[in-house]
Amino acid sequence: MFKRTISALIGAPLLLGLTYLGGPYTAFLVAVLAILGLREFLRIGKHMGMKVWNILTALATVGWLVIVFRYGSEWMSTAIIFWLLMTFGRLALTYPETPFTEASFNFLAVMYSTVLLSHLYLLRQLPHGLEWTFLTFFLVWATDTGAYLIGRGFGRHLLAPQVSPKKTVEGSIGGLLSSVVVALLFWRLANDAAFLTYFVLGITIGISAQIGDLFESALKRTAGVKDSGSIIPGHGGILDRFDSLIFALPLVYYGVILLS
Protein backbone atom coordinates (compact mmCIF):
# COMPACT_ATOMS: atom_id res chain seq x y z
CA MET A 1 0.00 0.00 0.00
CA PHE A 2 2.87 2.39 0.84
CA LYS A 3 4.50 1.79 -2.56
CA ARG A 4 1.18 2.31 -4.35
CA THR A 5 0.61 5.60 -2.53
CA ILE A 6 4.09 6.93 -3.27
CA SER A 7 3.81 5.91 -6.92
CA ALA A 8 0.44 7.65 -7.19
CA LEU A 9 1.74 10.81 -5.53
CA ILE A 10 4.59 10.97 -8.05
CA GLY A 11 2.85 9.59 -11.14
CA ALA A 12 -0.42 11.54 -11.06
CA PRO A 13 1.24 15.01 -10.96
CA LEU A 14 3.59 13.96 -13.78
CA LEU A 15 0.68 12.77 -15.91
CA LEU A 16 -1.41 15.87 -15.22
CA GLY A 17 1.56 18.25 -15.51
CA LEU A 18 2.84 16.99 -18.87
CA THR A 19 -0.72 16.91 -20.19
CA TYR A 20 -1.35 20.44 -18.93
CA LEU A 21 1.77 21.76 -20.69
CA GLY A 22 0.64 20.19 -23.96
CA GLY A 23 2.53 20.18 -27.25
CA PRO A 24 5.99 18.56 -27.03
CA TYR A 25 5.51 17.75 -23.35
CA THR A 26 2.41 15.65 -23.99
CA ALA A 27 4.13 14.15 -27.04
CA PHE A 28 7.05 13.11 -24.83
CA LEU A 29 4.63 11.58 -22.32
CA VAL A 30 2.81 9.61 -25.01
CA ALA A 31 6.06 8.43 -26.63
CA VAL A 32 7.43 7.11 -23.33
CA LEU A 33 4.16 5.37 -22.43
CA ALA A 34 3.81 3.84 -25.92
CA ILE A 35 7.36 2.49 -26.06
CA LEU A 36 7.20 1.05 -22.55
CA GLY A 37 3.70 -0.30 -23.21
CA LEU A 38 4.87 -2.02 -26.40
CA ARG A 39 7.76 -3.59 -24.50
CA GLU A 40 5.34 -4.97 -21.91
CA PHE A 41 2.90 -6.24 -24.54
CA LEU A 42 5.67 -8.12 -26.32
CA ARG A 43 6.83 -9.53 -22.98
CA ILE A 44 3.32 -10.90 -22.44
CA GLY A 45 3.51 -12.44 -25.90
CA LYS A 46 6.72 -14.24 -25.02
CA HIS A 47 5.01 -15.73 -21.97
CA MET A 48 2.29 -16.99 -24.33
CA GLY A 49 4.95 -18.72 -26.38
CA MET A 50 4.51 -16.21 -29.20
CA LYS A 51 7.34 -15.20 -31.51
CA VAL A 52 7.44 -11.42 -31.20
CA TRP A 53 8.77 -9.01 -33.81
CA ASN A 54 10.86 -6.71 -31.65
CA ILE A 55 12.49 -4.66 -34.40
CA LEU A 56 9.51 -4.40 -36.75
CA THR A 57 7.01 -3.43 -34.04
CA ALA A 58 9.48 -0.90 -32.60
CA LEU A 59 9.94 0.69 -36.04
CA ALA A 60 6.16 0.74 -36.55
CA THR A 61 5.69 2.41 -33.16
CA VAL A 62 8.28 5.10 -33.85
CA GLY A 63 6.87 5.66 -37.35
CA TRP A 64 3.33 5.99 -36.00
CA LEU A 65 4.37 8.48 -33.33
CA VAL A 66 6.26 10.60 -35.86
CA ILE A 67 3.20 10.69 -38.12
CA VAL A 68 0.79 11.58 -35.30
CA PHE A 69 3.07 14.24 -33.76
CA ARG A 70 3.80 15.80 -37.18
CA TYR A 71 0.48 15.48 -39.01
CA GLY A 72 -2.12 14.73 -36.32
CA SER A 73 -4.91 12.46 -37.55
CA GLU A 74 -4.37 13.29 -41.24
CA TRP A 75 -2.38 10.17 -42.18
CA MET A 76 -3.64 7.78 -39.51
CA SER A 77 -5.85 5.66 -41.77
CA THR A 78 -3.05 5.28 -44.30
CA ALA A 79 -0.58 4.28 -41.59
CA ILE A 80 -2.94 1.67 -40.13
CA ILE A 81 -3.57 0.14 -43.56
CA PHE A 82 0.18 0.10 -44.25
CA TRP A 83 0.86 -1.69 -40.95
CA LEU A 84 -1.96 -4.16 -41.68
CA LEU A 85 -0.47 -4.96 -45.09
CA MET A 86 3.01 -5.32 -43.62
CA THR A 87 2.02 -7.76 -40.89
CA PHE A 88 -0.31 -9.95 -42.93
CA GLY A 89 1.86 -9.60 -46.01
CA ARG A 90 4.61 -11.23 -43.96
CA LEU A 91 2.14 -13.98 -43.10
CA ALA A 92 1.35 -14.48 -46.78
CA LEU A 93 5.00 -14.58 -47.85
CA THR A 94 6.38 -16.78 -45.06
CA TYR A 95 3.48 -19.11 -44.14
CA PRO A 96 3.62 -21.60 -42.43
CA GLU A 97 6.79 -20.30 -40.79
CA THR A 98 4.73 -17.27 -39.71
CA PRO A 99 1.35 -18.51 -38.41
CA PHE A 100 -1.78 -16.39 -38.33
CA THR A 101 -1.69 -16.06 -34.53
CA GLU A 102 1.84 -14.63 -34.64
CA ALA A 103 0.98 -12.02 -37.27
CA SER A 104 -2.24 -11.10 -35.45
CA PHE A 105 -0.50 -10.71 -32.10
CA ASN A 106 2.23 -8.44 -33.46
CA PHE A 107 -0.31 -6.37 -35.37
CA LEU A 108 -2.31 -5.96 -32.16
CA ALA A 109 0.83 -5.10 -30.18
CA VAL A 110 1.25 -1.82 -32.06
CA MET A 111 -2.48 -1.11 -32.33
CA TYR A 112 -3.05 -1.52 -28.60
CA SER A 113 0.05 -0.04 -27.01
CA THR A 114 0.66 2.74 -29.54
CA VAL A 115 -2.26 3.54 -31.84
CA LEU A 116 -4.93 3.61 -29.12
CA LEU A 117 -2.70 5.33 -26.57
CA SER A 118 -1.62 8.03 -29.04
CA HIS A 119 -5.16 9.41 -28.86
CA LEU A 120 -4.06 11.04 -25.62
CA TYR A 121 -1.97 13.43 -27.71
CA LEU A 122 -4.69 13.85 -30.34
CA LEU A 123 -7.32 14.61 -27.70
CA ARG A 124 -5.06 17.17 -26.03
CA GLN A 125 -4.57 18.92 -29.40
CA LEU A 126 -8.30 19.48 -29.95
CA PRO A 127 -9.92 22.84 -29.18
CA HIS A 128 -10.49 22.81 -25.40
CA GLY A 129 -8.38 19.66 -25.46
CA LEU A 130 -7.02 20.21 -21.96
CA GLU A 131 -10.52 20.15 -20.49
CA TRP A 132 -11.52 17.04 -22.46
CA THR A 133 -8.34 15.19 -21.52
CA PHE A 134 -8.61 16.03 -17.84
CA LEU A 135 -12.29 15.04 -17.95
CA THR A 136 -11.24 11.65 -19.33
CA PHE A 137 -8.66 11.16 -16.59
CA PHE A 138 -11.09 12.01 -13.82
CA LEU A 139 -13.93 9.91 -15.23
CA VAL A 140 -11.64 6.88 -15.57
CA TRP A 141 -10.47 7.36 -12.00
CA ALA A 142 -14.07 7.83 -10.85
CA THR A 143 -15.04 4.61 -12.61
CA ASP A 144 -12.23 2.64 -11.00
CA THR A 145 -12.92 4.09 -7.55
CA GLY A 146 -16.68 3.66 -7.75
CA ALA A 147 -16.37 0.08 -8.97
CA TYR A 148 -13.96 -0.78 -6.16
CA LEU A 149 -15.95 0.83 -3.35
CA ILE A 150 -19.39 -0.37 -4.44
CA GLY A 151 -18.07 -3.81 -5.31
CA ARG A 152 -16.34 -4.18 -1.99
CA GLY A 153 -19.36 -3.05 -0.02
CA PHE A 154 -22.26 -4.51 -1.99
CA GLY A 155 -20.81 -6.90 -4.57
CA ARG A 156 -22.59 -10.25 -4.73
CA HIS A 157 -22.74 -11.34 -8.37
CA LEU A 158 -19.47 -11.97 -10.21
CA LEU A 159 -19.04 -10.06 -13.47
CA ALA A 160 -16.35 -12.08 -15.26
CA PRO A 161 -15.07 -14.73 -12.82
CA GLN A 162 -12.71 -16.39 -15.31
CA VAL A 163 -11.00 -13.06 -16.00
CA SER A 164 -11.18 -11.17 -12.72
CA PRO A 165 -12.70 -13.15 -9.81
CA LYS A 166 -13.11 -10.09 -7.56
CA LYS A 167 -15.09 -7.87 -9.95
CA THR A 168 -18.84 -7.88 -9.50
CA VAL A 169 -21.90 -6.71 -11.42
CA GLU A 170 -22.77 -4.37 -8.55
CA GLY A 171 -19.27 -2.88 -8.65
CA SER A 172 -19.50 -2.43 -12.42
CA ILE A 173 -22.79 -0.55 -12.09
CA GLY A 174 -21.26 1.55 -9.31
CA GLY A 175 -18.33 2.43 -11.57
CA LEU A 176 -20.65 3.43 -14.41
CA LEU A 177 -22.82 5.58 -12.15
CA SER A 178 -19.73 7.22 -10.63
CA SER A 179 -18.51 8.17 -14.10
CA VAL A 180 -21.87 9.67 -15.05
CA VAL A 181 -22.17 11.63 -11.79
CA VAL A 182 -18.67 13.10 -12.10
CA ALA A 183 -19.34 13.91 -15.78
CA LEU A 184 -22.47 15.84 -14.80
CA LEU A 185 -20.52 17.71 -12.11
CA PHE A 186 -18.05 18.79 -14.80
CA TRP A 187 -20.98 19.83 -16.98
CA ARG A 188 -22.34 22.10 -14.25
CA LEU A 189 -18.93 23.73 -13.86
CA ALA A 190 -18.32 24.18 -17.59
CA ASN A 191 -19.48 27.24 -19.53
CA ASP A 192 -21.69 26.78 -22.60
CA ALA A 193 -21.37 23.03 -22.36
CA ALA A 194 -23.86 20.62 -23.94
CA PHE A 195 -25.50 18.31 -21.43
CA LEU A 196 -25.73 15.49 -23.98
CA THR A 197 -21.97 15.55 -24.62
CA TYR A 198 -21.06 15.13 -20.97
CA PHE A 199 -23.78 12.57 -20.32
CA VAL A 200 -22.74 10.42 -23.29
CA LEU A 201 -19.06 10.68 -22.37
CA GLY A 202 -19.87 9.67 -18.79
CA ILE A 203 -21.58 6.51 -20.01
CA THR A 204 -18.94 5.83 -22.66
CA ILE A 205 -16.02 6.09 -20.26
CA GLY A 206 -17.85 4.25 -17.48
CA ILE A 207 -18.23 1.26 -19.80
CA SER A 208 -15.03 1.40 -21.89
CA ALA A 209 -12.74 1.89 -18.89
CA GLN A 210 -14.03 -1.31 -17.31
CA ILE A 211 -13.78 -3.25 -20.57
CA GLY A 212 -10.21 -2.02 -20.99
CA ASP A 213 -9.38 -3.26 -17.50
CA LEU A 214 -10.94 -6.66 -18.19
CA PHE A 215 -9.19 -6.97 -21.55
CA GLU A 216 -5.77 -6.50 -19.99
CA SER A 217 -6.66 -8.96 -17.23
CA ALA A 218 -7.69 -11.54 -19.85
CA LEU A 219 -4.43 -10.94 -21.70
CA LYS A 220 -2.38 -11.54 -18.55
CA ARG A 221 -4.37 -14.65 -17.63
CA THR A 222 -3.77 -16.05 -21.10
CA ALA A 223 -0.04 -15.50 -20.60
CA GLY A 224 -0.07 -16.68 -16.99
CA VAL A 225 1.47 -13.49 -15.56
CA LYS A 226 0.33 -11.38 -12.63
CA ASP A 227 1.43 -7.97 -13.95
CA SER A 228 2.43 -6.62 -17.35
CA GLY A 229 5.63 -5.22 -15.82
CA SER A 230 7.20 -3.84 -12.67
CA ILE A 231 8.21 -0.30 -13.62
CA ILE A 232 5.64 1.32 -11.29
CA PRO A 233 6.17 0.14 -7.69
CA GLY A 234 2.96 -1.20 -6.21
CA HIS A 235 1.07 -0.94 -9.49
CA GLY A 236 2.92 -3.19 -11.91
CA GLY A 237 3.53 -2.01 -15.44
CA ILE A 238 2.40 0.77 -17.75
CA LEU A 239 -0.37 -1.39 -19.20
CA ASP A 240 -1.57 -2.28 -15.70
CA ARG A 241 -1.90 1.41 -14.86
CA PHE A 242 -3.26 2.69 -18.18
CA ASP A 243 -5.42 -0.21 -19.37
CA SER A 244 -8.67 1.66 -18.69
CA LEU A 245 -7.44 4.84 -20.38
CA ILE A 246 -6.24 2.98 -23.47
CA PHE A 247 -9.80 1.93 -24.31
CA ALA A 248 -11.43 5.19 -23.24
CA LEU A 249 -9.20 7.75 -24.99
CA PRO A 250 -10.08 6.94 -28.65
CA LEU A 251 -13.79 6.86 -27.87
CA VAL A 252 -13.63 10.23 -26.13
CA TYR A 253 -11.61 11.73 -28.98
CA TYR A 254 -14.09 10.69 -31.68
CA GLY A 255 -17.04 11.34 -29.40
CA VAL A 256 -15.94 14.94 -28.80
CA ILE A 257 -15.49 15.45 -32.55
CA LEU A 258 -18.97 14.09 -33.26
CA LEU A 259 -20.84 15.74 -30.40
CA SER A 260 -19.13 19.14 -30.13
Results as ranks from 00 to 15, higher is better:
residue 161 P to L: 09
residue 81 I to V: 15
residue 125 Q to N: 15
residue 207 I to Q: 12
residue 118 S to Q: 05
residue 149 L to F: 14
residue 99 P to L: 10
residue 96 P to H: 10
residue 225 V to H: 10
residue 148 Y to E: 06
residue 160 A to S: 15
residue 158 L to V: 08
residue 252 V to N: 02
residue 53 W to N: 10
residue 43 R to W: 12
residue 236 G to C: 10
residue 144 D to P: 06
residue 173 I to H: 00
residue 97 E to T: 15
residue 74 E to T: 15
residue 191 N to Y: 15
residue 222 T to Y: 12
residue 215 F to A: 14
residue 146 G to E: 05
residue 241 R to W: 12
residue 128 H to K: 13
residue 33 L to F: 08
residue 96 P to E: 10
residue 149 L to W: 14
residue 114 T to M: 04
residue 178 S to M: 07
residue 169 V to C: 08
residue 201 L to D: 04
residue 74 E to Q: 13
residue 259 L to P: 06
residue 195 F to D: 08
residue 217 S to R: 12
residue 21 L to E: 06
residue 65 L to A: 04
residue 177 L to Y: 06
residue 182 V to K: 00
residue 22 G to W: 05
residue 156 R to F: 07
residue 156 R to E: 13
residue 260 S to K: 13
residue 260 S to G: 15
residue 161 P to Q: 03
residue 155 G to C: 02
residue 69 F to I: 07
residue 127 P to F: 10
residue 253 Y to C: 03
residue 38 L to Q: 12
residue 67 I to F: 00
residue 78 T to R: 14
residue 39 R to Y: 14
residue 145 T to I: 11
residue 97 E to K: 14
residue 209 A to H: 01
residue 60 A to K: 07
residue 140 V to M: 02
residue 130 L to H: 04
residue 13 P to F: 04
residue 23 G to K: 15
residue 67 I to V: 13
residue 160 A to R: 06
residue 255 G to C: 00
residue 175 G to T: 13
residue 116 L to E: 05
residue 159 L to I: 04
residue 106 N to P: 04
residue 72 G to D: 03
residue 173 I to G: 04
residue 197 T to F: 10
residue 95 Y to K: 09
residue 221 R to G: 01
residue 251 L to W: 12
residue 159 L to S: 12
residue 168 T to R: 08
residue 71 Y to I: 03
residue 168 T to V: 01
residue 254 Y to D: 01
residue 138 F to P: 07
residue 204 T to E: 08
residue 157 H to A: 09
residue 137 F to D: 05
residue 2 F to H: 13
residue 98 T to W: 05
residue 173 I to T: 05
residue 64 W to S: 11
residue 57 T to P: 01
residue 224 G to N: 07
residue 126 L to D: 02
residue 178 S to P: 07
residue 167 K to H: 08
residue 232 I to L: 14
residue 63 G to T: 13
residue 181 V to I: 15
residue 108 L to Y: 05
residue 69 F to L: 03
residue 9 L to Y: 01
residue 46 K to C: 02
residue 34 A to L: 05
residue 214 L to H: 12
residue 103 A to N: 01
residue 254 Y to A: 00
residue 219 L to K: 08
residue 110 V to L: 06
residue 211 I to A: 13
residue 237 G to P: 00
residue 86 M to Q: 09
residue 199 F to R: 09
residue 11 G to Y: 10
residue 241 R to G: 07
residue 196 L to T: 02
residue 141 W to D: 13
residue 227 D to K: 00
residue 56 L to A: 15
residue 233 P to E: 12
residue 34 A to H: 02
residue 254 Y to M: 03
residue 216 E to P: 06
residue 231 I to P: 01
residue 202 G to T: 12
residue 54 N to C: 13
residue 198 Y to M: 09
residue 191 N to P: 11
residue 206 G to L: 01
residue 133 T to W: 01
residue 78 T to P: 04
residue 148 Y to W: 11
residue 53 W to S: 13
residue 254 Y to P: 03
residue 234 G to F: 02
residue 196 L to K: 07
residue 84 L to H: 00
residue 29 L to Y: 13
residue 73 S to Q: 08
residue 121 Y to H: 15
